[in-house]
Design a protein around this nucleic acid. Structure first.
Lengths: 149, 149
DNA sequence: TGCTGGTTGTTGACGCGTCAGTCAAGGAGG
DNA sequence: CCTCCTTGACTGACGCGTCAACAACCAGCA
C-alpha cells in the first residue's frame, strides 16, 4: 500500500498539468486566429490531404486520427456546413460514406500548415533547451507506457 | 528568420501533446468513475471547502480557480441542479451572489480527494523516475515562462 | 434462401467552454 | 439628483465531446 503524493509532487503535478493545458490552449488560439481552423479541423484536413485522391472512408479517417466515429460524424457535419469537406456515398459498401476534401478545405489547410508549425516551434521547441526537449520526449514516452499498462 | 521545427522536433511535440492529453483524459475518467465529479466540479468544491464558512463570492471563486465568470456561472447552474452547491444573494452588494457549499457537495468532495490524489500518484508520479519528475517540473516552468513572454 | 451477428455511420441528449451581449446595481463627478 | 462608466452575474447561441441507441447493411452459415 503506497502513500499519497507529497506536497512537492503535487506542486510539480499542478505546474505540469496546468502548463500543458495552457500550451494546448495557446496553440489552439493561435491556429484559430491565423487560419480559422480548430485543431480538429486541422487533423481532418491533414489526413485528407495525405490520402490518395483526397478522399477517405469515414471509419478509416476516424481510425487514422484516433477519434470515435460519432465524434467524427458530428465534426464532419460542421465542416460540411462550412464547405471544407463533402460527404459522398461509397460505391462498394452502401453503408459507407466517403469524405472528400473540398477546395476551400484544401486552401485553408494549405494556408494553415506553415503558421501552425511556426507556432509549435515558437511555443514549444524554442521554449526548451535541447536537453529539455529530449527529456520532454522521454517523459512523454514514460507516461504513455505507464498509461497503457 | 528562424526555420520550422525538424521532423524530430515534431515527433517529440506530437508525443508530448498527445500524451499529456491522454493523461488528462485518464485522470478525468478516473475522477468521474470514482466520485461522479468532473475536474471542474472538483476545483469548485476544493475552493469552497477551503473558504471561510464554505461560502464565496462568485467573482472571487472565479478568480481563485482561474475561470471566466461566465464559465463559472454556467457550471454553477449545473452544480446547483445537482444540489452540490447553492447560490444566495449577497447581503453587502446586491449585485453579488454567494456560492455556498451544500452538504451533498461537501460529502462528494470528501469522498473524492483521496482517490483523486491516489490517481495522480499512480498515473503521474509513479510513471516517472525522481529525475524525470524534477525535469518535468523544470520543463513546465520553462514552457510557462515562455508563454507569458 | 433466410437468420444472425457484427459493421458503418448517424442521431439525440447532455455536459462543458467561449463569446458576445444584457441588465441591474454601484460609484464618481457635475 | 442625474449622467456616465464600471462591475457582478446571467443568458443564448454555438462549437465541441461522449454516450447510448439506431437503421441500414454486409457476411457467414444453416
Amino acid at each position: 500500500m503506497r502513500t499519497l503524493p507529497t506536497r512537492d509532487d503535487l506542486r510539480t503535478w499542478r505546474e505540469f498539468i496546468e502548463t500543458t493545458e495552457a500550451l494546448r490552449s495557446a496553440l489552439t488560439t493561435r491556429l484559430q486566429h491565423d487560419t480559422g481552423l480548430s485543431p480538429g479541423d486541422y487533423a481532418v484536413l491533414l489526413a485528407l490531404s495525405e490520402a490518395p485522391d483526397h478522399r477517405m472512408r469515414s471509419s478509416d479517417l476516424a481510425a487514422r486520427i484516433g477519434w470515435e466515429r460519432s465524434r467524427l460524424s458530428h465534426h464532419l457535419a460542421r465542416m460540411e456546413r462550412r464547405e471544407l469537406i463533402r460527404r459522398e456515398e461509397c460505391a462498394t459498401d452502401s453503408r459507407g460514406a466517403e469524405v472528400v476534401l473540398a477546395p476551400p478545405g484544401a486552401d485553408a489547410f494549405g494556408a494553415a500548415t506553415v503558421p501552425h508549425l511556426r507556432a509549435v516551434r515558437e511555443l514549444f521547441v524554442d521554449a526548451l533547451t535541447p536537453e529539455q526537449l529530449a527529456a520532454a520526449g522521454e517523459i512523454a514516452a514514460a507516461l504513455k507506457a505507464h498509461l497503457v499498462r
